[in-house]
Write a protein that binds this DNA or RNA. Structure first.
Lengths: 295, 295
DNA sequence: CGCGCATTGCAACAAGTGTTTCATAAAATT
DNA sequence: AATTTTATGAAACACTTGTTGCAATGCGCG
């Protein structure tokens, strides 16, 4: 169970003060926490052998507005547990205030949980397998259109610092996809696409497949059209309480892939990074000393 | 996920035969299995963006008597998983096994924690203030070079769907920064930069400042050179156990900003999104029906 | 062009939900 | 012993749930 379960503590603490019926209800809840989240109050009451009203009364006794607060508490706990082990800050604590005051917090906690959920064993296995495939490739072509451009570009950028094996399938004047010209079976295509799927991404992935490339996909669903085309699929959620999808989990996946690849060849990566450093230093790209500010 | 999940298999298997609405419902269920067990059908339908009836229809389509059978299936799965959780966690401990086996998991949990830490009160306040500033701007110029390009572009892309107030300071042949030509005091610059700070970003931010623009910065430290230049600063950690910095928290910040801005003008955002949808539909950008695969 | 056809949205439905109220029973207090 | 206080069960409440029938819509085919 949860480490710091405030509600459970409160129930235990005030158990002695409760009336017999309340105790019976409380005892059942303590011993069947998951059921609280999964069945209705009336059914829970039936199973606990008490009246429905007793559950409501128990909630009031615990200084809660109603029974729904008990349920939502255990729902959250179950969600958390199912999600994995996200060290999530206490749910909806100080969310008062401004228009979107709650929104920002909710979004961030949601994102945190989504990223945490990526460390499920299946996903980890797919990540490892995908890294294997990418590590063995002669070239890695990276494709991400529209919203997924950010993820594709980020992967490409990091990999550029680590070596010169990646080709980003993008460019001005629609020439981006010419890169696939010389691609072959020794190469791998990393394609990122989420619903709604850009037609062009699917076409290119299919083409790559026909040319014999292996395909690694970062996408959002088991029924994504990329699943049928790809050798390895890494699923990441894109749900958000806004109007648009989130790409934060996808970016996390991309970064993990980079990390895995770098870890496979520590010395090589380090050397490549040093070279990159020298190159960038020669071009004076970065501010090495904090510049005088001249407001 | 569960080892033998007959229902999931059935959904995936018959996904292609489904109507668009059924697919949308099925997709949501596949991606949020726990929610199925934890919320009501109507709420699930709301979150999935379909009619309540669609859920019932999906059940019938899968040869089930009703939606309750879907829910009970996932309830059982959740019960099972909760029971076997302790055992699984123990098993995971001893599996040090593969090369980067631990690395992926460590990275993901670290990222999750970093994102969660963004919901500290100070950051939330800065997010709100930044959103205020951005919402009031005539134009929003977005600047992110090198590694920060992904974040800048993502922000710009989402805002493009929501309206036409943003200008992305990037482009081929070094013309990207010309956008600032006509910028003035009514405009805002959103600049993303992390250590090592690209010189060019600092120069442009200073220039914008001199032209009277307000500046909102997403950066990584209180001693970032951007702090002195900017009106609002949102700090996000970039620490990573790899050779390179992480941008996942920065992207999360960007998405939250987009969310806040959209929430400030729900109707306008919705209308803009609909227009964008029509535009993209007219151009046939997206795969609207899942294409038959033709291996 | 019109015709079926499947698909979708809407509204009504009975059943079940959590809550509240009230009367009764039991206990505690005077 | 009388009276207040508390605890419990039962019923009514407003509301939401999952379901179903029907009308409107869009789409393909002759």
């Amino acid at each position: 169970m949860l480490q710091q379960d405030a509600l459970r503590d409160r129930i235990v603490a005030r158990f002695e003060e409760m009336s017999p019926q309340l105790q019976q209800a409380a005892r059942y809840i303590l011993e069947n926490t998951q059921e609280v989240a999964l069945v209705s109050m009336r059914e829970l009451a039936r199973n606990a052998g008490v009246q429905p009203a007793t559950m409501t009364r128990l909630a009031k006794f615990l200084d809660l507005p109603g029974y729904d607060d008990i349920r939502s508490h255990y729902s959250d706990a179950l969600r958390l547990r199912a999600d994995g082990f996200a060290a999530r800050a206490r749910a909806r604590e100080g969310q008062g205030g401004a228009v979107g005051g709650g929104l920002a917090q909710e979004m961030l906690q949601g994102l945190s949980a989504q990223v945490a959920r990526l460390s499920e064993p299946e996903t980890l296995a797919q990540l490892e397998a995908a890294a294997d495939l990418l590590a063995g490739a002669r070239r890695v072509y990276v494709l991400g259109l529209r919203s997924c451009h950010s993820v594709a570009w980020h992967f490409h950028y990091v990999m550029t610092l680590l070596g010169d094996r990646t080709v980003h399938l993008d460019g001005p004047a629609g020439t981006g996809t010419d890169g696939l010209l010389r691609a072959g079976p020794e190469d791998v295509l990393l394609v990122i696409s989420i619903s709604p799927y850009a037609l062009h991404s699917l076409e290119l992935a299919s083409l790559a497949r026909e040319k014999g490339l292996s395909v690694v996909a970062i996408t959002d669903s088991e029924v994504s059209p990329l699943v049928a085309i790809s050798d390895r699929v890494i699923l990441c959620s894109t749900e958000s309480r806004t109007f648009f999808h989130t790409l934060t989990p996808a970016l996390a996946v991309s970064e993990v892939l980079c990390g895995l690849l770098a870890a496979r060849d520590r010395e090589g990566s380090l050397k490549a990074l040093q070279e990159a450093d020298q190159h960038l230093a020669a071009l004076n790209i970065y501010a090495n000393t904090i510049p005088r500010r001249r407001i």
